[in-house]
Design a protein around this nucleic acid. Structure first.
Length: 366
DNA sequence: ATCGTAACGGTTGAA
DNA sequence: CTTTCAACCGTTACG
């Protein structure tokens, strides 16, 4: 909670940083140096996610009732991509891309191995499939991270066999935190992108502890992003305690994105991640590129300074959690409820405040 | 005309 | 340190 003070201070330095950021951006992204141009004239970086600003914009426009095809034309993003982003948003409530790279989450975590070993010690004749059942029954694993029978066999063969001689696993790691949770250390990072498994269509939420796997969208929901986290809140929670969960998730989601979306405060500790940014134009905050994406005439002034803030918000903790898509916004967008005063993106502000002004946008697209 | 989606070539990062 | 692999990306083209 040293951030209470830091929060206040963050405003000052924050502005400085923003300024700095802009200077950098000016140099880095007059136009996307490594971008390619799609059929619509939009610039993209193959293999890399669209800047969050664009993604956000897509959702915003959709919430305003603009058709995907028009959004596509207006933002010069392929309709396939618009479709995908909106579908994802609909499904998860997040505009963010999934986790890029890395390996599948490990299921045979130390905790699981330990349990397997225990089972084996208690009943040397136990079968792998029995162990599997017990892992599930005992809540060590859930059906999403339950090791396969062959994995268990391998563990029995490779690890348990050796370990049983010297029990290095436990002695080596006295487990200061006796597996507090069956949840796996890796899984909290990866669970969210189970976007393929996450919520089987029709199943809105995951029951019980599985809900935990879905906390991520919370901080990334459009509402949160738009909202609009005040600058003072954005203190990147350097305390590794509670709030950092979100942060970790964030960084796990996509490191380059993380750095690009988060406040420059991260830069200090994240140097390696800056490189890709310089390389691509997924610049810090992903904003400057916006201008090159967005068709100038149709988009209201997209003042960078104010745009930055929502993305600084990405790194912050979460407050409100829009479970999803309040899709066709009943009245006004789901985004507007937030008083877009301090940190709200001008882009949105201009939309919600002068809703009339946005109509021309829609009109121009139609 | 619009939309959903598979294929494609690409990037990324853990193992 | 390099390679492999499986995740994701956005674009394109097709239905």
């Amino acid at each position: 909670m040293s951030n209470a003070v830091g929060g206040l201070c963050a405003v000052g330095p924050g502005l400085l940083v923003l300024l700095l950021c802009h200077l950098v951006c000016l140099f880095l992204t007059p136009e996307p140096a490594f971008g390619e141009v799609n059929q619509l004239g939009g610039v993209f970086v193959n293999g890399r996610p669209l800047p969050n600003a664009i993604r956000l914009r897509i959702v915003e426009l959709a919430q305003l009732g603009i058709r995907p095809c028009d959004i596509s034309r207006q933002l010069r993003v392929s309709h396939g991509c618009v479709s995908k982003i909106l579908a994802r948003y609909n499904e998860t409530g997040s505009i963010l891309p999934g986790a890029i790279g890395g390996s599948k989450p490990r299921v045979t975590t130390p905790t699981v191995v330990k349990h397997i070993r225990t089972y084996k010690q208690r009943d040397p004749g136990i079968f792998a499939w029995e162990i599997r059942d017990r892992l599930l029954a005992d809540g060590v694993c859930d059906k999403f991270n339950l090791p396969s029978v062959s994995s268990i066999s391998r563990i029995l063969r490779n690890k348990i066999g050796n370990l049983s001689q010297q029990s290095q696993y436990e002695s080596g790691k006295p487990a200061p935190h006796p597996p507090p949770q069956p949840t796996l250390p890796y899984n909290h990072l990866y669970s969210y992108p189970t976007s393929k498994v996450p919520t089987p269509p029709g199943m809105p939420t995951l029951p019980g502890h599985m809900a935990m796997h879905r906390i991520w969208p919370s901080s990334h929901s459009v509402t949160d992003i738009l909202g609009i986290r005040s600058i003072t809140e954005q203190q990147i929670s350097d305390s590794p305690s509670f709030p950092s969960t979100k942060l970790e998730e964030w960084s796990a989601i996509n490191r380059s994105n993380f750095s690009s979306a988060s406040s420059p405060l991260v830069n200090g500790m994240d140097k390696p991640h800056l490189e890709p940014q310089a390389k691509y134009t997924q610049t810090p905050s992903g904003l400057p590129t916006v201008n090159s994406y967005v068709t100038a005439p149709s988009i209201p002034p997209y003042h960078p300074p104010t745009q930055v803030s929502p993305y600084m918000g990405y790194s912050a903790t979460t407050s409100a959690y829009v479970t999803g898509p309040t899709w066709p916004p009943a009245s006004g967008s789901a985004l507007s409820p937030h008083s877009c005063d301090i940190a709200s993106p001008l882009a949105f502000k201009s939309m919600s405040v002068n809703r009339d002004a946005i109509h021309p946008v829609a009109a121009s697209a139609l």
